[in-house]
Simulated assay, not measured.
Amino acid sequence: MAHRGILRTATAVLALALPTALAAPAAAASADPPPQETAAAPADHGASDVHVVPGSYSVRHYYSTWREARTYRQRDTGHPTGTVLPAGRHYFFCQTEGQPHSDGDGRYSTWWVLTDDSANRDVFVSATALRLAEPWKPVAGLPGC
Protein backbone atom coordinates (compact mmCIF):
# COMPACT_ATOMS: atom_id res chain seq x y z
CA MET A 1 0.00 0.00 0.00
CA ALA A 2 2.78 2.45 0.89
CA HIS A 3 4.27 1.77 -2.50
CA ARG A 4 1.07 2.96 -4.25
CA GLY A 5 1.07 6.21 -2.24
CA ILE A 6 4.63 6.97 -3.24
CA LEU A 7 3.81 6.18 -6.88
CA ARG A 8 0.77 8.51 -6.83
CA THR A 9 2.83 11.28 -5.25
CA ALA A 10 5.62 10.84 -7.80
CA THR A 11 3.08 10.87 -10.66
CA ALA A 12 1.47 14.03 -9.30
CA VAL A 13 4.84 15.76 -8.98
CA LEU A 14 5.78 14.78 -12.54
CA ALA A 15 2.43 15.94 -13.85
CA LEU A 16 3.06 19.37 -12.34
CA ALA A 17 6.76 19.63 -13.18
CA LEU A 18 6.77 18.21 -16.71
CA PRO A 19 4.89 21.08 -18.47
CA THR A 20 7.16 23.62 -16.78
CA ALA A 21 10.30 21.68 -17.72
CA LEU A 22 9.20 21.37 -21.33
CA ALA A 23 8.23 25.04 -21.57
CA ALA A 24 11.55 26.32 -20.16
CA PRO A 25 13.61 25.77 -23.37
CA ALA A 26 10.93 27.51 -25.43
CA ALA A 27 10.81 30.44 -23.01
CA ALA A 28 14.59 30.74 -23.08
CA ALA A 29 14.59 30.72 -26.87
CA SER A 30 11.92 33.40 -27.07
CA ALA A 31 13.89 35.63 -24.68
CA ASP A 32 16.61 36.06 -27.33
CA PRO A 33 16.24 39.14 -29.52
CA PRO A 34 14.96 38.52 -33.05
CA PRO A 35 17.59 38.25 -35.77
CA GLN A 36 18.61 41.53 -37.40
CA GLU A 37 17.99 42.21 -41.08
CA THR A 38 21.41 43.76 -41.59
CA ALA A 39 24.86 42.34 -41.29
CA ALA A 40 26.67 43.36 -38.14
CA ALA A 41 28.88 46.36 -38.66
CA PRO A 42 32.05 47.03 -36.71
CA ALA A 43 31.77 49.57 -33.91
CA ASP A 44 32.93 53.04 -34.79
CA HIS A 45 35.65 54.14 -32.38
CA GLY A 46 37.33 56.79 -34.49
CA ALA A 47 37.84 58.17 -37.94
CA SER A 48 40.39 55.59 -39.04
CA ASP A 49 38.92 52.23 -38.05
CA VAL A 50 35.68 51.90 -40.03
CA HIS A 51 35.93 48.98 -42.37
CA VAL A 52 33.10 48.81 -44.88
CA VAL A 53 32.44 45.35 -46.28
CA PRO A 54 31.01 45.88 -49.78
CA GLY A 55 27.39 44.79 -49.97
CA SER A 56 27.22 44.16 -46.23
CA TYR A 57 24.39 46.61 -45.61
CA SER A 58 20.94 45.71 -46.87
CA VAL A 59 18.42 47.97 -45.13
CA ARG A 60 17.94 51.20 -47.06
CA HIS A 61 16.88 54.47 -45.45
CA TYR A 62 15.63 57.10 -47.88
CA TYR A 63 16.52 60.78 -47.58
CA SER A 64 16.59 63.70 -50.00
CA THR A 65 19.71 65.59 -50.95
CA TRP A 66 19.23 69.27 -51.60
CA ARG A 67 22.17 69.54 -53.97
CA GLU A 68 24.57 67.48 -56.03
CA ALA A 69 27.16 65.87 -53.77
CA ARG A 70 30.55 64.34 -54.48
CA THR A 71 31.10 60.77 -53.29
CA TYR A 72 34.19 59.52 -51.50
CA ARG A 73 35.74 56.14 -50.72
CA GLN A 74 36.42 57.18 -47.12
CA ARG A 75 35.01 59.65 -44.60
CA ASP A 76 37.14 62.50 -45.80
CA THR A 77 37.68 64.43 -49.01
CA GLY A 78 41.07 62.85 -49.72
CA HIS A 79 39.72 59.94 -51.75
CA PRO A 80 37.05 61.15 -54.21
CA THR A 81 35.40 58.63 -56.51
CA GLY A 82 35.05 61.11 -59.36
CA THR A 83 31.29 60.57 -59.29
CA VAL A 84 28.48 62.65 -57.83
CA LEU A 85 25.15 61.89 -56.25
CA PRO A 86 22.58 64.14 -57.95
CA ALA A 87 20.10 66.20 -55.96
CA GLY A 88 16.97 64.17 -55.17
CA ARG A 89 15.79 61.16 -53.17
CA HIS A 90 18.39 58.46 -52.46
CA TYR A 91 18.93 55.54 -50.12
CA PHE A 92 21.55 55.49 -47.40
CA PHE A 93 22.68 52.56 -45.25
CA CYS A 94 24.28 54.13 -42.19
CA GLN A 95 26.33 57.05 -40.88
CA THR A 96 29.61 57.58 -39.11
CA GLU A 97 31.78 60.48 -37.98
CA GLY A 98 34.81 61.49 -39.97
CA GLN A 99 36.73 64.54 -41.07
CA PRO A 100 34.90 67.88 -40.91
CA HIS A 101 33.42 68.96 -44.23
CA SER A 102 31.89 72.16 -45.57
CA ASP A 103 29.66 72.25 -48.60
CA GLY A 104 30.76 75.77 -49.47
CA ASP A 105 27.37 77.27 -48.57
CA GLY A 106 28.08 77.60 -44.86
CA ARG A 107 26.91 74.10 -43.85
CA TYR A 108 29.42 72.08 -41.83
CA SER A 109 29.41 68.55 -40.46
CA THR A 110 31.64 65.71 -39.32
CA TRP A 111 28.97 63.15 -40.24
CA TRP A 112 29.24 61.01 -43.37
CA VAL A 113 26.55 58.75 -44.80
CA LEU A 114 27.13 55.50 -46.68
CA THR A 115 25.35 54.92 -49.99
CA ASP A 116 25.87 53.76 -53.58
CA ASP A 117 26.29 56.15 -56.47
CA SER A 118 25.78 55.46 -60.18
CA ALA A 119 29.22 53.85 -60.55
CA ASN A 120 30.35 52.80 -57.05
CA ARG A 121 29.05 50.75 -54.15
CA ASP A 122 29.54 51.65 -50.51
CA VAL A 123 30.72 55.24 -50.86
CA PHE A 124 30.45 58.14 -48.46
CA VAL A 125 28.69 61.48 -48.90
CA SER A 126 28.95 64.33 -46.43
CA ALA A 127 25.77 64.71 -44.40
CA THR A 128 25.79 68.39 -45.44
CA ALA A 129 24.13 67.25 -48.69
CA LEU A 130 21.06 65.87 -46.92
CA ARG A 131 18.11 68.20 -46.78
CA LEU A 132 17.23 67.53 -43.13
CA ALA A 133 20.76 67.25 -41.71
CA GLU A 134 21.65 69.68 -38.95
CA PRO A 135 25.18 71.09 -38.69
CA TRP A 136 27.54 68.97 -36.57
CA LYS A 137 24.77 66.47 -35.65
CA PRO A 138 24.07 62.91 -36.80
CA VAL A 139 21.23 62.40 -39.26
CA ALA A 140 18.02 61.61 -37.37
CA GLY A 141 16.83 58.04 -37.92
CA LEU A 142 19.91 56.75 -39.73
CA PRO A 143 21.80 53.99 -37.87
CA GLY A 144 25.52 54.11 -37.20
CA CYS A 145 27.99 52.11 -39.26
Rank of each mutant, 00 (worst) to 15 (best):
H79A: 14
G78V: 01
Y57F: 11
C94F: 05
G88I: 07
D49N: 10
T81D: 14
A87D: 13
H51Q: 15
H51A: 13
P54C: 08
E37C: 00
R89V: 13
E37T: 01
F93R: 00
Y57T: 06
T81R: 08
S58L: 07
P42W: 03
V84K: 07
G88L: 12
Y57R: 11
T38D: 15
V84Q: 09
P35I: 04
W66F: 02
V84P: 02
G55E: 13
W66H: 09
T38Q: 12
Q74C: 06
T83I: 08
V50E: 13
H51R: 12
T81C: 12
V53D: 15
G88Y: 10
S58D: 13
A69G: 05
A87V: 07
G46Y: 09
F93L: 10
T65P: 05
Y57K: 09
E68C: 00
V50L: 15
Q95H: 03
G46P: 10
W66E: 14
A41L: 10
A43H: 03
A40K: 10
Y57E: 14
R89M: 14
L85K: 05
R67P: 03
T71Y: 11
V59C: 10
W66L: 01
V53F: 09
H45R: 05
P42N: 06
T96P: 01
R89L: 15
Y57D: 12
P80T: 11
R73G: 13
A43D: 13
R75S: 00
G88Q: 12
S48L: 13
G78T: 07
Q95K: 02
S58E: 12
S58T: 08
T77F: 08
H90T: 07
V84G: 01
Y62V: 12
A39N: 07
P54T: 00
D76P: 01
E97W: 00
C94M: 04
F92E: 06
P35N: 04
T81N: 11
T96I: 01
D76R: 03
T38I: 02
G82T: 06
V59K: 10
H61N: 14
E68S: 03
P35D: 15
Y72A: 01
S58M: 06
P86A: 09
D44A: 02
L85I: 09
Q36W: 01
F93Y: 15
Y57V: 03
E68T: 07
R73A: 15
R60N: 11
C94E: 07
P86K: 08
T96V: 04
Q95W: 00
E68F: 00
Y72M: 04
H90M: 09
F93P: 03
G82D: 13
V52C: 04
R73E: 15
Y91V: 03
T65I: 05
T77R: 06
D76K: 00
H45M: 08
C94S: 13
A39S: 07
T83M: 11
P42Q: 05
